[in-house]
Design a protein around this nucleic acid. Structure first.
Lengths: 154, 154
DNA sequence: GCCAGTTGGTTCAAATCTGAAATAGAGCTA
DNA sequence: TAGCTCTATTTCAGATTTGAACCAACTGGC
């Protein structure tokens, strides 16, 4: 078997991985400076705000965030302390619990979103033209679908 | 000022960020299962193996990994315990120290690399055609250059 | 109904990561 | 060369993350 990656592929891979690291760090820093939130905090708020009734089962949230169960327990606990979400036990399945967006959480999200999106634009989107955005969207949408499918199948 | 991101941009952004999360998690898991290494461990080994004489100053390594100084201190300490790298104090500047790849570290890298690269191919590259790879490479190379430049300028 | 086997979440100890000090040496200027 | 400022790295305490173990509640087969 030949090299697992051609030089061209290797270059693409390295560029992607290293720049993504850089981008994440930058966005994290901006978010912290502007809103005092973590990227994870923000992502939880977004997902909850989009869910019907502002609530999601822990498992569902964990799977969308790609978080381990214990990590999500901690994350929600931390956000609960800060009043951004509440935890309610689930009526249909008494093993389960749900995270619910609070008014304070929604307010925090509304306040943070424009700053964050501006940061995304400045650090990422502004460098791309329309064709590139289209390719990225296509590539990563497909990638996500593939990986999610495999993940379910183990 | 209008919305900071158009719906098209937003879709691209979400696809990128969520799929990247998924991809990283998958690669991490594969790496751990196949080599008992962390993605960070691996990246350190790669950077050192490419450096002249297999050694790099802590600061240089931190900057390439996008690690905080204290994080790198910890990371190298951990790898030192496992015999993958050694730490030597720097002759030219006695404040500094360098991380040096050990024979054991090089052996570990050689053993891990094919598994990892196969995982990168299977989870990422195989889904892309040549045009897409070219676009990704171009986009992320440019992004990296931009972000690094801004990072230096504060 | 009653188990055995799953599932959904939490808990726990250990590992890792973070930002703010602390250290120590370099380098410049008077 | 003494005194200042800056730089490279480590240390420290606290926050987060990890994987394994645990607990309770659901489910299906008998």
């Amino acid at each position: 078997m030949a090299e697992p990656l051609t030089p061209t592929e290797m270059a693409g891979w390295r560029a992607y991985i290293e720049s993504s690291q850089l981008l994440m760090t930058q966005l994290e820093e901006d978010m912290r400076a502007e809103s005092g939130l973590t990227f994870n905090d923000y992502h939880v708020l977004v997902l909850l705000s989009e869910a019907p009734d502002g609530r999601l089962r822990m498992g569902e949230l964990a799977s969308r965030l790609v978080f381990s169960p214990s990590r999500l327990t901690y994350q929600i606990g931390s956000m609960e302390k800060r009043g951004l979400v509440a935890r309610e036990s689930c009526p249909e399945d008494r093993r389960g619990s749900e995270a619910v967006l609070t008014a304070e959480g929604l307010r925090t999200l509304r306040e943070a979103a424009p700053h964050h999106l501006r940061s995304v634009r400045a650090n990422f989107m502004d460098g791309l033209d329309e064709t590139e955005i289209a390719v990225l969207t296509r590539v990563f949408t497909r990638l996500g679908e593939r990986l999610r499918a495999e993940r379910v199948a183990q």
